[in-house]
Every structure is written in structure tokens, then in C-alpha cells.
Amino acid sequence: MRSAKPARFSKLARFSKGAAWLAVVVLVAVTITFALSRIVPADPARLAAGLEAGPEQVERVRQDLGLDDPIPVQYVRYIGGLLTGDFGDSLRTRGPILDDVVESLPASLELIAVSFSIFAVLGIVLGVVWAYWPRGVHAVLLRVVAVAGAAVPVFWVGLLLQILLAGRLGWFPVAGNLNHEAAGIAEVTGAGLLDALIARSPSAMWEAARVLFLPVMTIVIHNIALTIALMRSSLADQLDQEYVRAARARGLSEWRVVMVDALRNALNPVVTMLGLQLGWLLGGVVIVEVIFSWPGIGLYAFSSFQAFDYNAIMAITVLSTAGFVLVNALVGLIYPRLDPRIQEGG
């Protein structure tokens, strides 16, 4: 809280520190995955050339891909490629990996954005309800949700929902994303809900929501548990504090005391946790996408792993590591807004 100038300096310092950290983490991730991709038992050239290829053909592919160069040369070349945004070609789809990623990203982002908004908002609301009214049937139910939801394996919940709601009852499609052609809308962004919104087609919107429902519910069931639990304990702690009693004694409205003063303080750890969960979703979405054949980045990653497509595996590891670090850095930027005690210099 001094003059503006030092604060701006420290902001710049913080930014460059964060950028350097991102670079270090990604570099380590690249190095580890690169090392792994060169010690694997399978031969990438053989995979790329196809099963029917003879020895000479495999050799030619090896030269074309630069796999016969010394490992350090390959490493430097790979890093150089990354710096110019070139992740190499996929051995499986034969196209540039970046194109594949860009194509499958919208579906994943849609899934993550919808699930995250639901479990974040609903989790906070339910946690507040639980903390404010700690006794009653709802409290028992919330405790069951909080403990069971966190202990239940995601892949199994997905499977159960699929068997019950899609298979037996037929309320939802078993798997797959919105079929843009069948819904009669143009594919603009690749995310079904958005495209339906752009086309102003309520029926396509309904269809997109129906397709999203099961995967979203699977993610929400697992992730809402932690949000509810943490929100409850954090707010309950705050409600026990002296300042809350003081505020009540001064005659402030209950709403103002709980929802403004106490909640603001209680949200801090919850926001941190939500940021972490958002980071985890970047990876955790793989299982859900595989169960529901959701054509996003997770399914792409899974298929690449199945096919031992190293370039794609490395690209996905690098990209998701960068995403994870970035999300965590963004959460760090939200703190000072919630808690003025955390100043930018600190």
C-alpha cells in the first residue's frame, strides 16, 4: 500500500518469475517424456512405416523422421520445433499434431467448462447451506455425498450411469457427441452448445444438452464432493470467529454477516481448491471421455497411447502440463482480490 511504482515493478517481477517457472516445468516435462519415448521397447519407425513394410522401407522412414540421428540432435531439434509451435506429425492420423489437438479441443473445453461451472456453483451453495444449518436430514445427505462422492471411482460411476440412464431407461444417448448434421446446424466452434446457440436452434440446443448430460454428471458427482466438504468446513470456521459475533452485535443483517463478511473470507481456500480441480480436470477428463466416446482431447490422448503414437503422447503431456501450471498461476492472481492481506509484493 505504498506508492504505485514499486507495486508495478513487483507485478512485472512476479510475472517474469511465473513465466520462468512455467518454462522450467515444461522443459522438465519435455525432457522426461522425450527420454521415455527413446527408451521404449517399440520401434517408432516400424510403427510409422506400417505392418507390411519391408526392412528397407522401415529404414527409409527412419531416415525421413530423423530417428537415425544421435539422441541429443533429436532432442535439440524437438525443442526447436516446440518453440516454433511445431509438435511434429502424428504417426496415427499422419497429420500435424497441432491440427488434431485444435480439432478435438473444443469438445473437451465444452465438457470441462459446463461441468466445472455446475460443480463449483452448486458445491459452494450446498457447502454454505450445510455450514449454516449443520443439523437435519440435509446435513446427513450432504455428508454422504461429500464422503461417497470422493471415494467412488469415476470410471465406475460413468459406467453405472451409462447402464442405468442410457441403457435401461434410454433417457440419454449411450455415447458420442452431438451430430451437427443430424441436428441441422453448422459446425462453427466444434462445441455443440455454442454452435446451437449461434444457429439459434432450440432443438439442437436440447440435443446438445442431452448428449452432455451423462459425462457432465459423472464429473460433477466426483468433484462436487470436495467442494462441498471444503466450503462447509471453511465457512463453519469463519462463523465461529469473533468478528462474526461482533458484526451481529452491531446489528448488521444476517445476510450481510454470513454472505458478505464470512463467506468472503471462507472462499479463499475453496477458490484454491477449485483451481486445482480445474487443473486436474485437464487430465481427469480422459477417463470420462473414454467411457462416453466423447471426441475430445482426452479420447485423442487415449487413442494415441493405444497406438504408441509418441509424438502425440509427448505433445499432450507438454500441453497439459503447461495448462496445469497456467491454471494454477491464474488462481494465484485471484487471491489478492479475495484477501487484501495478500499483497502483490508478497
Partner: peptide
């Protein structure tokens, strides 16, 4: 650095590479 890795993707990469 290790804690900054997205664990599921990383575990997949390592496990897939080791066979």
C-alpha cells in the same frame, strides 16, 4: 516441479512408455 505435473496424463505417458 513434480507437483506441477498433471498426474493422470503423466502417469499415462510413463506407463505407456515403459510397456
Amino acid at each position: 516441479v513434480f507437483l506441477a505435473f498433471p498426474y493422470l496424463v503423466f502417469a499415462m505417458a510413463v506407463a505407456a512408455s515403459l510397456g
